[in-house]
Nucleic acid binder design. Sequence first.
DNA 1: GAGATTACTTGTATAATGCAAGTAATATTT
DNA 2: AAATATTACTTGCATTATACAAGTAATCTC
Lengths: 137, 137
Amino acid sequence: MPCDEKKRRSLCPVTFALDQVGDKWSLLVVRDLMLLGKKTYGEFLESAEGIATNVLANRLKCLEAGGIIEKARDPENKRRYLYSLTEKGFDLTPILLEMIRWSAHHDSDAGIPKDFLDMIENDRERLIAKVRAGMTL
Amino acid sequence: MPCDEKKRRSLCPVTFALDQVGDKWSLLVVRDLMLLGKKTYGEFLESAEGIATNVLANRLKCLEAGGIIEKARDPENKRRYLYSLTEKGFDLTPILLEMIRWSAHHDSDAGIPKDFLDMIENDRERLIAKVRAGMTL
DNA sequence: GAGATTACTTGTATAATGCAAGTAATATTT
DNA sequence: AAATATTACTTGCATTATACAAGTAATCTC
């Protein structure tokens, strides 16, 4: 179980970000919340990458401890929790979009909708606003 | 030793990026090359975060295999190698800059020079050009 | 009340990391 | 020219994280 709240490897801002979301799984949970409209444990588990259930539980705990996501009981089904991004979590949007842009340029079988890519490159602010407003891919 | 060239967890562009640089160390090597003017194994080892020598060796190999950095003998000292970013590596600049921006906003003791932050937010393209041209912090 | 959902936890084998020490090639010093 | 120092690693081993399978507790449906 990582997410040692205390341990900070350095004061570098790049390191600050990596210490919180610099692993192979955290940003995929963020992606699910930010771009794919997923909200529950079960939905995250179903994602194509096949995260292990204990790793998912750990990442949700770490992301919540880091103030990136929030957890609330689903009022309509009390055995379910609804996860959501905090402001700090939504502020990761530009990082995710730049990762998508990088992959669009360097992954031969990227398959990113052209209009989405255009929007990243030419209308970033509006795209970010739409993501924040709940737009889903 | 990760960097399984073959293994791809999914076709998602976020995953594509994470599969290559989604760990706690790779982007720190990129940062050293991109923003701190470091070029050699010994310089990377000295970075504040304290990377282990075997992990550094592995990351350099993976980044090179992924076409993100290149390795060349130093003509002036043949026991030394000079590492540098490829185009693909330089294209990570926006991701790094967005990480720095995120940290500037969410890390209370961020200590990022104000003019650098202003430049990220208001004059991105010129900043990226300067980084590519070899600007160092 | 019995069975199904949902969100986890636990156990265990495998893999990655951290740390200390060692090696090989080239360069410098004496 | 021999001895020492640099530089870029590799190796071995203890610790930690991950993957996989199975189990549990609370709530819901029938």
